Every structure is written in structure tokens, then in C-alpha cells.
Amino acid sequence: MSLLKVENVSKVYKSDRFLWGQQRITEAVKNVDLIIEEGTCLGLVGESGCGKSTLGKVILGLLKPNEGEVIFQGKNFCKSNGRRQYGLRRDLQVVFQDYSSSVNPKHNVEKIISEPIRNYLKLSPLEEKKKVLELLEIVGLNQNDIKKYPHQFSGGQLQRICIAKAIALKPKLIVLDEAISSLDVSVQAQILNLLLSLKEQFHLSYLFISHDIEAVSYIADRVAIMYLGRIVEEAENIKNLEELKHPYSKKLLASVLNPYPEEGKFLDSSFDEVSISKQISCGCNYIERCEKAMEICHQQVPTFNSVAEGHKIACHCEGI
């Protein structure tokens, strides 16, 4: 049994009508199917506004989907009652992008990290403090930091505190929502290595949400590419990113700068801003930016086609 199954999930936002104006409908997530096996990391990649974080919030139960189901540990998380959700949440944690907003500035480190422990575990004050000290050591912080406050830490250190809080209950799945994007490059590498180490140590599973396709390829076992609410490509064990086939995936790769500036790199000038001309899509979402668009792309939403073992894309150009 898979740890997490996302089945045909859609999330639509509707704006209020104002006088004679029309109601605006935004399809943030559209008929998404995903599976995460226990002990694996799924990397979800896409540019800002593609619906990655919205999907993450639906999985976490912070947003209700308009359609579809989120099955976590064999139970429908979205339709579970409060008591059952309380039990499931112990095994489902999150690390957000904004580490400063994820902690209470009036609480010290001990109180921040011990919050989930107090909610779920009945420990004495001495046992609770010992647990917090162990967690600080695991994430690479000094035990003397236990009485410090958030303003006394750097961004990377604060994110380590957030990670310590997320692993406090040894959950099954952690949603990492742009967890490294606001950090310096050198600190990003440290956090990625820490996450990989914790994954092995505690047999964790991750949903790693990011716009950084190279970071995703470093940490993830599987990669899913998302564009305007839809998954357009999924691939297992991608070691060479050049193996990605979808036109949008290739655009994402083209946007990655060369680590050796003196060699130079040609940047695709056609990588423009997202433009949505229709409120509800009836064909391929990517048609307005695709150089290979055909007549069928205007009329029919592409379905997944297998291009190799464990590798499938949603594109008419590859399926015909």
C-alpha cells in the first residue's frame, strides 16, 4: 500500500462578482494524480504560480479540494473527522519556505520544538527537554541554543529549528514547501544534505516542492513537473536531467544558469511570462508557449504516454 495517494484532485478559486463584472475562476490544481511510496522523495517542480504550494496545502488538509481524494496511510484524509485527522497529522508534517513566520518570535527554541511533543506525547518536563536537546544535535545545532529566541539565529539555523520541529514525532511524510529557496546557495547545500541524512536515519518520505529543478534532482527519487495546475511529466530515477522530454521541462532546464560563467550559456528568449487567455482550459495548458503546438492541442487535454520505463509525459507531440 502506498503511503500517499492523490487521486484526481482539483482546486478552483472563484472571485466575487462586483456589480456587472464577471466572476473570475482560477483553476489552481487540475485533476492531479500522485503517489508517494514509503521511504521515498517525490520532487514537485514548476515555476511560481503553477499550483505546487496549493497542492501541498491540499495534501496537508489546510485546503479542501473541490474534487478528488487524498489517501494517506489508507485513509481518506480530506473526509476524515477531526479525531481521525488528529491521529493522521502526527505522521504528516511540514516545513515552509518562510522560516521566520513558522516560529513564534516570543517563544524560545525549547518551546518551539516541544510544541508537537506536548500535543501528542505524554512526557515529563525532564524527558521533554532531553528530547529537544537530542533534536537540536540531530539537526546540527548546539545544545546551548535551547534557551535562545528566533531573532538570535540566522536563516539557515532557523530552518534547522523548523526541521527539528517537523521530525520531533518521527512522522511518515514531510511536505517541504520551498524549504531551501530563501536560503543562501551554500546553506541550501547544507540543508539538502541534512534532509538526505534524516531521510535515511528515520526512514522518512518527502514531498519536496521547489522551482529549483537541480535541487530536486539531487534529493528526489522521482520527479513530477507541474504547469498551470497539471502534472505534465513524471520520471523515476532521473540522474541526467537532459532525459526530460516535455517542452516545458526543457524550458525549465534552459533557464538553469551555467555554474561556470566563463563558458557562457544561451538563454531561450521565448521563456516569457505565463499568459492565461481562458478561465477554464479545454485543451493543453501549455499551448500558448509551445513551439510544437498542433490543432489537437487546442481541442483535447493530453493524457499520459509512457516514453520509457518509469517515465511518462502528457503531450500530444510525443503521443502521435
Results as ranks from 00 to 15, higher is better:
101 S>M: 11
224 A>R: 12
279 Q>G: 00
255 S>Q: 05
86 Y>L: 12
171 P>N: 04
39 G>S: 03
58 V>R: 05
29 V>W: 10
107 H>F: 15
255 S>W: 10
208 F>I: 05
11 K>M: 03
160 R>A: 06
304 F>N: 07
18 F>Q: 10
36 I>R: 10
278 K>S: 06
306 S>H: 02
25 I>L: 01
265 K>T: 01
75 K>C: 00
56 G>E: 01
175 V>M: 03
289 R>G: 04
95 V>T: 13
60 L>F: 08
30 K>D: 15
53 S>D: 11
37 E>W: 11
206 Y>P: 09
291 E>A: 14
233 E>S: 09
125 P>Y: 09
59 I>T: 04
176 L>K: 03
254 A>S: 15
41 C>A: 15
92 L>K: 05
206 Y>M: 12
8 N>D: 14
13 Y>M: 01
313 I>Y: 01
203 H>E: 08
180 I>R: 04
269 S>P: 11
152 Q>Y: 05
128 E>K: 10
179 A>C: 15
148 K>Q: 14
146 I>Y: 03
60 L>M: 15
127 E>Y: 01
9 V>L: 01
14 K>N: 08
225 I>D: 07
279 Q>D: 04
101 S>C: 06
62 L>K: 02
45 V>Y: 10
239 K>H: 14
135 L>N: 01
87 G>L: 14
272 D>H: 13
313 I>C: 12
195 L>R: 11
78 C>I: 14
